[in-house]
Amino acid sequence: MKVLLIEDDAETADYILRGLREHGHSVDHAQDGQDGLLLAMRDIHDTLVVDRMLPELDGIALVRRLRASGIRTPVLFLTALRGVGDRVRGLEAGGDDYLVKPFAFAELLARLNALARRPPLAETPLILRLADLEVDLLKRSAMRGGERIDLQPREFLLLEFLLRHADRIVTRTMLLEGVWDFHFDPKTNIVESHMSRLRSKISRGGRDPELIHTVRGAGYLLRGPTES
């Protein structure tokens, strides 16, 4: 089994690395989230072991980016956080299993073996479409009516989130958690300002029908144009 360990704590990393290698497994190691993301996207692994709290890029954000890129490698989260809410957020972000520190190596190995035995999931679509709007998740590009739309990274994530929830109302709280990874309200107009810019770009200065609609008192809705 080839494993990618993304863990910044030297003692924990050494404990896992020695154990896995003693059992004959191949292990790559990254000490922060950014390096871990690059390794996970560059090489093929059977399983990932991801610490929940990482420097540069935390584990939740890392796994979300992997899943958005179509990488379905099973992920085992390691965490010192024992709350149910923390585990739920990790699983909703795309994690497959959770192990709370401190842990016995035998349990970690058993969980990794179980994840590696799972049949591969169905392919995740790498292109999202609505009407004449098309988003390529691998190239990180967006087009409408065959014309490229230049988006900033956060605008791209916002559009991707809306497309994944097309024809459903998304609330401000959902956007803060899903796009900005905020679990609190920063009391700014960050959502509204980004949504305004994205709406203008998607409608290409008003030349095309609106796809992003404001639902007063509820949130936003991405919906294809309806026939009059």
Rank of each mutant, 00 (worst) to 15 (best):
K2S: 12
V3A: 08
L4A: 00
D8V: 02
E11L: 07
D14C: 09
Y15W: 12
I16E: 09
R18F: 03
L20N: 10
E22C: 03
H23M: 04
G24M: 06
V27E: 01
H29C: 09
A30G: 02
A30D: 06
Q31H: 09
D32R: 04
D32E: 13
G33M: 04
Q34P: 00
Q34H: 03
D35Y: 01
D35H: 10
G36M: 05
L38N: 14
L38K: 15
A40V: 05
M41V: 06
M41N: 09
R42K: 15
R42T: 11
D43Q: 14
D43H: 10
I44W: 03
I44H: 10
H45M: 02
D46S: 08
T47M: 00
T47K: 01
T47G: 00
T47Y: 00
T47H: 00
L48S: 02
V49S: 03
V50T: 07
R52T: 08
P55K: 02
D58G: 08
G59V: 05
I60L: 15
R65K: 13
L66P: 03
L66A: 05
R67E: 02
S69I: 01
S69T: 03
I71Y: 08
I71Q: 09
T73Y: 00
P74W: 01
V75L: 03
L76T: 02
L76I: 01
F77T: 07
T79R: 14
L81P: 06
L81N: 15
R82E: 12
R82T: 12
G83A: 11
G85T: 13
G85R: 15
G85H: 12
R87P: 06
R87Y: 05
R89H: 07
G90A: 04
E92M: 05
D97W: 04
P102A: 00
F105I: 05
F105N: 07
F105E: 06
E107T: 07
R111N: 07
R111S: 04
L112W: 07
R118T: 11
P119W: 15
L121E: 14
E123H: 05
T124S: 08
L126I: 04
R129P: 00
R129H: 01
D132T: 11
D132I: 06
E134L: 04
D136V: 13
D136W: 07
D136A: 09
L137S: 09
K139A: 15
K139V: 12
A142Y: 12
R144Q: 09
R144M: 08
G146N: 12
E147M: 14
I149Y: 14
D150L: 14
R154N: 09
L157P: 00
R164P: 06
R164A: 03
I169T: 15
I169Y: 07
T173Y: 04
E177W: 00
G178N: 06
G178P: 02
W180H: 13
F182C: 02
F184V: 02
K187S: 04
K187N: 05
I190K: 10
I190Q: 10
E192I: 02
H194E: 07
S196R: 14
S196T: 07
R197P: 01
R197V: 08
R197C: 01
S203W: 11
R204S: 05
G206I: 12
D208I: 10
P209F: 02
P209V: 03
P209D: 12
E210S: 14
L211F: 13
V215R: 14
R216G: 03
G219W: 00
L222E: 08
P225S: 03
P225I: 04
T226I: 09
E227V: 15
S228C: 08
